[in-house]
Structures are given as structure tokens and as C-alpha cells.
């Protein structure tokens, strides 16, 4: 695979710029705390979008992969005293294996059987996390150790000194989450521009046609399913270390739906669009503090309205609008929007 340089990705510098601007405009620990979580969830959704937007497969169990990463890290570091990095990798490996085992038979079939399989898998994982209290802490949740690497601990409750600057733990975590998001986008974009991405788009367009020209469709679908599950697992691990306490609620079906809603709202197949989708949906609970009972209803409404008025999602629809009104704008071709 040839790796693209940023020059081929006009969106990436913009993303970096926005990430750099956020702490300057919103210089407050509370905002940064929310922004950090947004970046981690956005990175998860970028991974999910590879599956939904490019392979045309829907996973209704991504929250469970996220939770497996989170719990894997929590249990391995907390109960068994591992250091966070091997724990994270081990959890990701476990998730990859599970995704592979489930995806291999299912993805040989045409159609949307993967949704059914992941729906079932997600519910089973949620039940296991709830019931195996001796391991997972049960419904009451489990505390998670702070992230550390070779004895260096990154906690939002500490302060760090770097080149004479005092950096709060919140700022340091925000920086890490920002880097992770940029990395997630960069890897995703490279995958999309690789032969794998082209094969996947062919599958998305017409699976029969793709097979006819010799694309091993089930192989590529399986590959991308495993990759997107690993995205969720790794971000789940970071999320767990960041928030310091996790509950089985992370694995619920509702959480999976929330992730899918972010993809649909932002724009399936648009890497930057789904980031905006994640940011908007995570803002909702903070915006609607007075209407909390209607939050689930709002999710449904947003999903419906998006499907009716912007079937391509927020960003692709908006950019199409902009193009129509300002046709002189700089254009680049390609389906990424």
C-alpha cells in the first residue's frame, strides 16, 4: 500500500487546524474534557464509517467492541496489574479475533446478515459484562487505572512540565486524543485510497459486478470489519483510561445505535462528515439538559430527518449545496467528501 502524504488529503490540515484552535477558543477544563471524549468517539466512528460507508455493511454491535476494549484494559491493568499498552493491544487482538470469527462465515453471504450477527453478538457481550461481576464489576461498573507508558503516567488530575511550560492533565489528554483522531483519519484515508478501498467501493456499488471482475468480496468485507472493530476496541481502551470509570452501559444496543446515528447524520462514506456527526450528537446531552427525557426521541427525529432530507448525510449535502452556489470553488474529485 502506498501511503499518501497530507498534500493529497485536503481535509487533514483543516482537521489539525480545528483541533489546534479548540483549546485556544475554549480554554476551559470542562470544554476540553468534553472535546477529548468527542475526539475519542469520533475516531471510533471514523472506523465504523469504513464498514458502513465503504463496505456497505451495518454493524449493530460496535458499542460491544468499544466496551470490550474498555473492559479489557480495565481488567488487565486493574485486576492483573498489566501496563496499559500491552493491555490495550491484547484487548484489541481479542476483539479482532472475535470479529474475524463472527465475520468469516457471515460475510460470505450477500446482504445484511452482518447486522443481525453483530446485533446478537453485542447483546451477548453486554449480558456477559453485566453478569460476570467477579471479573467486570457487574452493573455497578469498574474503576480504571490512568494511562501510563514506561512509568510515565498520564492522568487528568496531574500537571506536567514540558520545556518550562506547565500543562494540565486535561490539556495533555486533549492533545493525545487529538493525535489519535488525526491518526485514525490518516489511516482511514489511506485505506480508502488503497486497492482495498477501491475494491470495497466496488462491493458497495454492486457486489455481483465486483465479483465478476474478480474482487474477492468476502475477503475485503471481512478485512474491513475486523479493522473497524479494532478501531472501536482501541478507542474504547483510551476512553476507559480517560474517564477512569466504566459501566456495562458502554456495551448497550442504544450505544451502538448512537454510533450508527453519528455515521448516518454526518454522512456515510465521508470521513470528515462522520466526525461532525459525532461532535453534534455528543453535544446534544449538554445542550438539552432541560429536555433530557426527550433525548432518545431527538435521536430518532434526527435520524429520520437526515434520511428524508439529507440521505447522504450532513457534510456531503452541505458541500453539494456549497458547490452549487459557488461553482468556482476548488474541487477535487473522489467520493470522499
Amino acid at each position: 500500500m502506498r501511503l499518501s502524504m497530507p498534500s493529497k488529503m485536503p481535509g487533514l490540515p483543516v482537521l489539525v487546524l480545528v483541533l489546534l484552535l479548540v483549546p485556544i477558543i475554549l480554554n476551559d477544563e470542562f470544554y476540553l474534557d468534553i472535546a477529548t471524549q468527542m475526539a475519542l468517539i469520533a475516531a471510533t466512528v471514523v472506523g465504523l464509517n469504513l464498514l458502513v460507508g465503504y463496505a456497505g455493511q451495518v454493524s449493530l454491535g460496535h458499542a460491544a467492541f468499544f466496551a470490550m476494549g474498555a473492559y479489557g484494559s480495565a481488567i488487565l491493568t486493574g485486576t492483573y496489574g498489566w501496563t496499559p499498552v500491552p493491555a490495550l493491544l491484547c484487548a484489541a487482538l481479542l476483539v479482532a479475533t472475535l470479529a474475524w470469527l463472527v465475520g468469516r462465515p457471515i460475510l460470505r453471504l450477500k446482504g445484511h446478515y452482518l447486522s443481525m450477527a453483530t446485533l446478537g453478538l453485542g447483546i451477548i457481550i453486554a449480558i456477559v459484562i453485566n453478569n460476570e461481576g467477579w471479573l467486570t464489576g457487574g452493573p455497578d461498573g469498574i474503576p480504571v487505572q490512568p494511562l501510563s507508558l514506561m512509568g510515565f503516567e498520564l492522568s487528568i488530575f496531574d500537571e506536567y512540565h514540558l520545556f518550562g511550560l506547565v500543562i494540565s492533565g486535561t490539556h495533555a489528554w486533549y492533545a493525545l486524543a487529538g493525535v489519535l483522531l488525526v491518526l485514525a483519519v490518516w489511516i482511514a484515508q489511506n485505506l480508502i485510497d488503497s486497492p482495498i478501498g477501491r475494491a470495497l467501493r466496488a462491493v458497495h456499488g454492486s457486489e455481483v459486478a465486483a465479483r465478476t471482475v474478480g474482487v474477492d468480496t468476502s475477503h475485503y468485507k471481512l478485512l474491513i470489519f475486523v479493522i473497524s472493530a479494532v478501531y472501536a476496541s482501541v478507542m474504547g481502551s483510551f476512553f476507559a483510561h480517560y474517564t477512569g470509570f466504566i459501566t456495562p452501559q458502554l456495551a448497550t444496543f442504544e450505544h451502538s445505535i448512537e454510533l450508527i446515528t453519528m455515521v448516518v447524520l454526518g454522512g456515510m462514506g465521508s470521513t470528515y462528515g462522520v466526525i461532525i456527526g459525532a461532535v453534534l450528537l455528543l453535544l446534544l446531552p449538554q445542550l438539552l439538559t432541560d429536555f433530557h427525557e426527550y433525548e432518545m426521541m431527538m435521536f430518532g427525529l434526527i435520524l429520520m430527518l437526515t434520511m428524508i432530507f439529507m440521505p447522504k448525510g450532513l457534510l456531503p449535502t452541505l458541500s453539494a449545496l456549497v458547490k452549487r452556489h459557488w461553482p468556482a470553488g476548488v474541487r477535487s474529485s473522489g467520493p470522499e467528501g
Binding site: 483543516v14 470528515y272 453535544l283 470553488g329 477535487s332
Partner: peptide, 22 residues
């Protein structure tokens, strides 16, 4: 993807974020 529209979108989101959380 249109560079300008992307910039505008991102700027709009950032402003919204600022307003919303303030």
C-alpha cells in the same frame, strides 16, 4: 471534497460548540 466548504463547516461547528457550551 471542497476545501472551502470543509473549512466553513468546521468553523461553523467550532462556533456552535463555543456558543453551546458557554
Amino acid at each position: 471534497m471542497n476545501k472551502k466548504s470543509l473549512l466553513r463547516g468546521m468553523a461553523a461547528v467550532t462556533t456552535l460548540l463555543a456558543l453551546a457550551l458557554a
